[in-house]
């Protein structure tokens, strides 16, 4: 990983975009990295598109708004169309191919298609599709140590929702193995 990793997660409200962003952010924090997390906010969140910028860095973070992502996680077609050209050359795009049938035309980026929503539904992990993609991102980009990721997912799930921890850990594992 270079000094700074800019991550953009985008999809519909309700797909866990902000939660997945927090998972990545907390994992980076467990490695004692500098972190920022910036959500889109306002009416666009209510059923519309939702996105979240996460920066993990060795040094203090300037703008927390990611305009040229190193990694894009796209959970629906409007999000992919909107941000595909913004990804830096050599960057990584993770696509939920259950939601997006279109293929990325660019050849200067690494693209991974995961049938995340379908896999999640089949395995009883409804709502965890994006965490499968976070697992895949961990495997391909290595944004933190494995230990930090394990701690990060524990940190981000509040005590009263402890039942969700196992499901999310399972989803991460599926992503890392796919």
């Amino acid at each position: 990983m270079s000094k700074t990793l800019n991550v953009l997660l985008a999809g519909f409200g309700g797909q866990g975009i902000l939660f997945a962003g927090k998972t990545i952010a907390y994992s980076g924090l467990m490695d004692n990295k500098e972190i920022s997390w910036l959500p889109s906010y306002g009416p666009e969140m209510r059923g519309g598109t939702c996105n979240c910028s996460v920066v993990i860095s060795e040094e203090s973070i300037g703008s927390p708004l990611v305009t040229q992502p190193d990694v894009l996680i796209a959970m629906n077609l409007p999000s992919l169309d909107k941000f595909v050209d913004a990804v830096v050359p050599g960057g990584t795009i993770l696509v939920d191919s259950s939601m997006i049938s279109k293929k990325v035309e660019r050849t200067d980026v690494n693209v991974y298609y995961i049938d995340a929503t379908k896999i999640a539904d089949e395995r009883g992990l409804k709502g965890c599709a994006i965490i499968i993609l976070v697992g895949k991102m961990f495997k391909e980009v290595g944004f933190c140590t494995k230990e930090a990721l394990d701690k990060g997912i524990q940190k981000v799930i509040p005590a009263k929702k402890a039942a969700m921890l196992g499901l999310n850990q399972e989803a991460l594992k599926i992503g890392m193995e796919s």
Binding site: K22, A25, L29, E34, I35, S36, W37, L38, P39, Y41, I61, P64, L65
Partner: peptide
Amino acid sequence: DGMLGQMMEP
């Protein structure tokens, strides 16, 4: 401002 209000940092 809205950016500092909404963003998270350690």
